[in-house]
Every structure is written in structure tokens, then in C-alpha cells.
Design a protein around this nucleic acid. Structure first.
Lengths: 205, 205, 205, 205
DNA sequence: AATGAATGAGACTTCATTCAT
DNA sequence: TATGAATGAAGTCTCATTCAT
């Protein structure tokens, strides 16, 4: 079903430009109408190309959403990796708030589009792709924690990194979806505190 | 669009039984085929009634999913409320692990069905309904925390309860969706530790 | 299709009352929703009986409309026959305006319902039934004209009566459907004048 | 409901041909099965196109009937306008029989199809459209009568033209629907005589 | 490469009618 | 007789996808 994300590698620059307008058109239409109500015809029209051209590059609507997700997640991963590199040498108490904040900022980019894509969910491979990225970020987080092992009481840093990544990611998404009534700085501070406190607890297992 | 969840109040017992077989049929079909591929005709056939009967009680497929969600969330709320009452007088360090475990157990009920419904997501009103239940549970959690305020360092118990509820709920869901490679008891212990440590941290704001 | 208008002769008075409320309910629903959108379930509800009872007396929706048409046309025929008897001895110049006026008055009764039934048209046997009544009225008109033959120049009184009846009936219906911008008395006077003038013309054939 | 008669302007010639075969298929199916029993699938099959193509150009069955009506009425208006131009300078006594005959001839074109469309009636916008055309013809008739005012006794030529148009049109339609037992030439002669005599009568108002 | 008219499977939904109670 | 829950055939319409130009 999800045959191949992109049908033919657009090597010509004209093709590349066409792919670009199609992807942008898709983003616009997904935001305006939601994933289900968006049709390939809508998208082609919004992109200013014919349906035929759309199908030249994308086998179906799902592939378009997948492409948008991939771009978003790649950006997310890039941002967080970069930020982690920046704070890698800082002590955990300083680094974690920075990472939480970075995660929050990363989720503030085109929230409508990504909300729509999240809702499209597994039909679009969102789950698998997102889990893949989180897995990568989990690995990064573990590396970071291990290099700061002596600052921490928690021993199972693999599990520790897992919990941090998922807890932070989900709360940031939740905040985007339904902003809570507290100053965001407070929320960020609390999330960071939760993480720091956790890493400093002497849980067994 | 989501006009009314149930079309007519089934007062007669025959009607009630019909509604029941339809809802059960829907659950089965949703699990077997996923939300998108399920059709009202599939569901009617699975339930052993005619499509007409299905439409007598439910305006569309979404309403069926909504009904299933409502039942699930009501059960969830009931379980957690009950558990919270049980542990209400215990100190936080004892109560939280019990609650985390209860949350985990609650998510272990018909996980396939609820995964499908989560994926159906907002098309089905899942988001709104779930947020409503979490709001209720947030209120309960806050009450609990306030009655144990002197055991805690965190001051903003409203925000505190919010973070606990969302962090726990999301991690439990994640574990259901993609079980991690650690013993579940360890995961539960760590989540509880994260919560306890957080509440004992002296974050400002 | 139009098996039999009424299924069982309602001999019991309870039955007769039931038929009555059903017919009245049908009239109300037809006016409110139009013929096509009216369903037998709507009608049964409006009449305060169950669908089953409705089907006990009427085989289908068409039969209900037919019944209403029959009642209407019977009333129309009765009124016009009566009026014609009244004016039978008057000279044509006096009688025709009276008949035109009577025709107009007759069409003023429950115009909404009858408009709906006209629109339902042949599906409901309207055409056949109406033609039947017009045929009867044509016969009456011819009798009248023949008994006044010496006041008239037109010789083919059969054709003459036919034209009068159809011309008057159609114009009266048209006036009901889309009232023209002239005083109705003027319109009636003109129609009468047209009829009188026609009968006084020496057309051959 | 009657959103737009035609969905997209067929600019390409292929589209135009498709629209044409669809309209012709619709005409055939309406005649064969009547309006109610005709389905869009029947029509598409009869036209040799897919349902999808039908819906590309017509939002529903009603729109197809409306298109056929529009064509018919346009033709009717064209014919009568032309005929009126021909006889415009003739005296009323000569012109009216010619117009009545023309009206009769015009109604002889595809009578079955138009009978079906009349029966479909207001569901199809027939009423509104027909009234519009009659309004136009009323205007033409009035112009004609006014330019012959000195041949006539009737003074309210507006109302006069109205009566003529409606009386003639309805009788012609009636004759098509149920041919009466007299030679049509006689009927035409009588209708014309009725009109001429009316215009020569000295009705007040 | 691009176009966009054409396709058609199949989902949704209604409502006249039946029949067990 | 009355009830109204249940039936299911059949019609409407959409939209992802193809393919002739």
C-alpha cells in the first residue's frame, strides 16, 4: 500500500520544482481542509499542477503526508541534535531545561499542519516514522546521560532516556494541542524539574 | 457532523439488545479491519442485524466509534477514581506507584480496539472526549495532592497534577502501542519514581 | 402499483376515526414537507398512530395522496354542480361570470395542499382523476350550454364546453400558483368576458 | 438544492461532446422509464459514459431534467418569437390563428419527453422556468397587441395578453396530453376564435 | 513531462414495507 | 387491531487513479 514514498527521483531541476510546489500545496490543503477532506485534485489545483503531474511524483495522498512528516521529523531531529551538541558538556541541571525548551520550540513550528498529520496517524505511517525518530533521539539522549553518569543516581540510563524522551515529547505535543492555563515558562520549568529530579532519584531496576 | 451520538433512546429492551449487538459488532469489526476499512455494512453483518437497524440507532460509523470511546473512557475514569479512593490516605510515595500501576492495568483492557480508536482520532471525537476525561482526572489528582500538600515540595499543585496525569497517561499508552524491552515492573517503578521525585523537587513557578 | 386506494373498508367507527386522523396527518405533512420528502413514518407520527396502522388502511403514500385528491375533487365537483344548478336558468351572460367566480373560489380552498398534490402529479393518479372530474364537468357544462343554445352563436357546443372548462380551470389554477398583478375581480371579469365573447362568436367547425 | 444547473463550463470539445451524449441519454431514459424511475446510473449507461462523468457535469438528475427543460423552452420561445415576427403586421384576426397554430406545432415536438418533464414538475424547476418563459412571451404578446390597439376593444392589454398566453398554452398542453375527439383544426379554430372574440369584447377593468 | 477528462468500485444512507409481539 | 423495531433493496455520489492527447 505504502509502495514507495516518491515515485521517481526528480533529477531534473524542473521536476524538483514541481515536487516542491506539490508538497507545499499539500501542506496548505491539509491545513485548510484536514487530511480526510483533502483530495488529490484539491492538492493539484492548490499546487497549480494537474493531477497527472501529482501522480507522476507521488503514488497517493498518503505519500504526500508521509513526505511532509519526514521533512518535519528530520527538522525536529536536526534541531534537537544540534541543541544537544550545544549543551553536551553542561551539567544535567543546566542541559535538561535547555533541551526541554528546545523541544517546545521545535513543536511550535507549523503546529496546525503537524496536528493534522498526527491526526492522520498511522494511515500515513506517522506512528512508525515518529517512533523511528524518537528511537534515534532516545539513543542520543542515552549517550548524553551516560557521559554524565556520575551526576545521576538513576542506574538504568537506557530506560531513563526512554522515559525522558517520551514524557517530554508527549507533554510538548499536548501543550501545542491544548495550551494549559499556566505561563509556558513555568510549564517548561516544571517539566525540566521533573526530569532532573527523576534522574537524581534512587529508583531500583 | 457528530449530530448526536445515539439517535433514539432505546427504551424497549429489544432495542437495547440491538444496540448492544451493534456496538459489539462494531468493536469486532474495528479490530479486524481498522476504522477506515470498516463499513457500516460490515458492522451490521457482524452484528447480525440489517444496516437499517444500525442507522436507526447510530447516524454513522463515527458515532459507533464515539460510543465505544465513551464506554472505554467511562470505564477508565471509574477504575482510576476507585483506585484513587483506595489509596487516598496513603502517603504519596506509596500511593503513586499504585496509581501508575492502575493506569497501566487500565490501559491493558482491549488494547487493540482502543488503539484503533485512538488512530481514528479526532474524526471520532476521541480528542475532545479524552481531554475531557483527563480534565476530570486532573481535578481528582489535584484534590489528592492538595490533601497531601505537606508531604510535597512542589507548590503549584494544579500544574503538578496536570503534568503527572499527562505524563503517566501518555507513557502508558506508548507502552501499550510499542512495548519497550524492559520488564514492565521496572518501567512502572521508574515512572512512579519520576512522579515522586518531581513532587519532592523545589521547582519555582 | 396503485392496487387499491383503501385497503379495508373501515366499517367500525374506531377504524373510521383512525382513517380520518391518518388522512389529516397526511395533509399536514404533505403541506409541511412536500410530497417527496413526506414519508409514511412522518405521516404516521403526525397522525399519532403507528406505521403499521397506516398500512392497515392505505397501501402506500400514493394512496394517501389519492385519497386527498379524491376528496378535493369531489368537493370541487359538488361546489360547481351546485353553483351550476343555481344559475342554470340565468342567461349565459349572467351565469358565466358566476361560474368563473365559483371556480375561482373553489380553487381558493387549501391551495397549499393542492399545489403539493398537483406537483405530485401523475405519480398519484392526479392526472387521471382530474381529467375524470373535468370530463364530468364538461358534460354538465355542455348540458347547460345546450339548454341555452339559442343565446349562442357557437354551434359545436361539445367542443365549446370543453374549451371553457379547460381554459377556466387552468387559468384559475395559474392564478393560485402565481397571483398576477391585477385585481382578481378584473381577472375574473376578463375570463368571463372571454367565455361569453367566445360563445357569441360565429366560428365554423 | 438546484445548486447550479451545469457544474463546469465545458470548454474543451471533448467535454462538450460528453455533455451532449449525457443530455441525449437522459432524454432517452426519461422517456423510457419516467423521471422517477430513471437513475443516474441508467442515464450514464444509456449515454455510454461512466457515472463519474455524469456527475462531473451535472450535480444530479434534476439538473439534467432542468437542462432539457431549458433547451425545450428556449426552442419554444424561439419558435414563437419567430412566428410572431412573421405575423406582426397582420391584423389580429389573421395573426391569432397563426399563433395558436404555431403554439400547437411547438407543443408537438418531442411530446413524450416534455410530458415526463412536466410531470417531474417543480422538483426540476420546471415551474419557475416555464413561468419565466411565459412571462417573456407575455411581454411579446403585449407588444403585439399594443401595436394593434386600434383593432381591439379590450383596453387592459397587459391582462389581455396574460390571459391569451396562459389560455392558449394550457389548452395546447392539454390537447397533447389527452387528444380530444374533434379535428385539431377545429380546436385550433375555436381557440383562435375565443381569443379574437375576447379581444373584441368590451369588458371593463 | 504535463494535462485533465474519464473511469467505476463501492461507501453511505434512506424509507417503504413487514411481522413478531 | 395496534405497535414500532427490523428489514434490505436500491439510489446517490465521491474520489483515487488512469491514460489518451
Amino acid at each position: 500500500m505504502m509502495e514507495r514514498n516518491v515515485r521517481r527521483k526528480p533529477s531534473q531541476s524542473r521536476s524538483k520544482a514541481t515536487v516542491e510546489v506539490i508538497v507545499e500545496g499539500a501542506a496548505r490543503v491539509f491545513v485548510e481542509r484536514g487530511f480526510d477532506s483533502a483530495t488529490t485534485n484539491h492538492i493539484a489545483k492548490a499546487a497549480g499542477v494537474s493531477v497527472g503531474s501529482l501522480y507522476q511524483y507521488f503514488p497517493n495522498k498518503e505519500a504526500l503526508a508521509a513526505e511532509l512528516i519526514d521533512r518535519h521529523l528530520a527538522e525536529l531531529l536536526r534541531l534537537l541534535t544540534e541543541k544537544l551538541a550545544e549543551v553536551a558538556t553542561l551539567p544535567v541541571v543546566a542541559a535538561l531545561p535547555a533541551m526541554v525548551r528546545a523541544m517546545f520550540d521545535a513543536h511550535s513550528h507549523e503546529p496546525q499542519l503537524h496536528r493534522v498529520l498526527m491526526e492522520a496517524g498511522s494511515r500515513v505511517g506517522m506512528d512508525r516514522r515518529k517512533r523511528e525518530v524518537l528511537r534515534q533521539f532516545h539513543a542520543l539522549a542515552r549517550l548524553y546521560l551516560e557521559s554524565h553518569r556520575d551526576e545521576l543516581k538513576v542506574r538504568n540510563l537506557d530506560l531513563g532516556a526512554y522515559l525522558l524522551v517520551f514524557a517530554i515529547e508527549n507533554i510538548m505535543r499536548e501543550i501545542q494541542a491544548a495550551p494549559p492555563p499556566w505561563p509556558l515558562d513555568d510549564v517548561v520549568a516544571h517539566v525540566a524539574a521533573m526530569c532532573v529530579a527523576y534522574l537524581d532519584s534512587d529508583v531500583v531496576g
